[in-house]
């Protein structure tokens, strides 16, 4: 599963929106990810991908695709095969 798909699945669960409503260009705002859900999403991203997200790096106007690229840039090299 690609990083995008894994992230989209996570956003779908956190924001309680249907998975098929999430496109690469959807922003978190458009998906009604509120301030609490944004923190929850970042917690899950950190846990799932084994990365550390700095405060302010992921914001509500970011797109799913943009966040997916941010995650991939920070993946430990030995984790990349899983993310492809």
């Amino acid at each position: 599963m690609t990083t995008f798909h894994r992230l989209a699945d996570m956003v779908s669960r956190v924001a309680e929106v249907p998975l098929d409503s999430i496109t690469p260009t959807s922003s978190l705002d458009e998906l009604e990810v509120d301030s609490l859900a944004l923190v929850e999403l970042i917690l899950r991203v950190e846990k799932t991908f084994g990365i550390s997200v700095r405060d302010g790096d992921v914001q509500s106007n970011d797109t799913i695709d943009g966040i997916a690229r941010y995650i991939e840039e920070r993946l430990p090299t030995d984790a990349i095969p899983d993310a492809v």
């Binding site: 301030s35 609490l36 859900a37 923190v39 929850e40 917690l43 950190e46 846990k47």
Partner: peptide, 10 residues
């Protein structure tokens, strides 16, 4: 502390 849920207080 970084793992504490944002939903803890509400």
């Amino acid at each position: 502390p970084r793992a504490v849920s944002p939903y803890h207080l509400p």
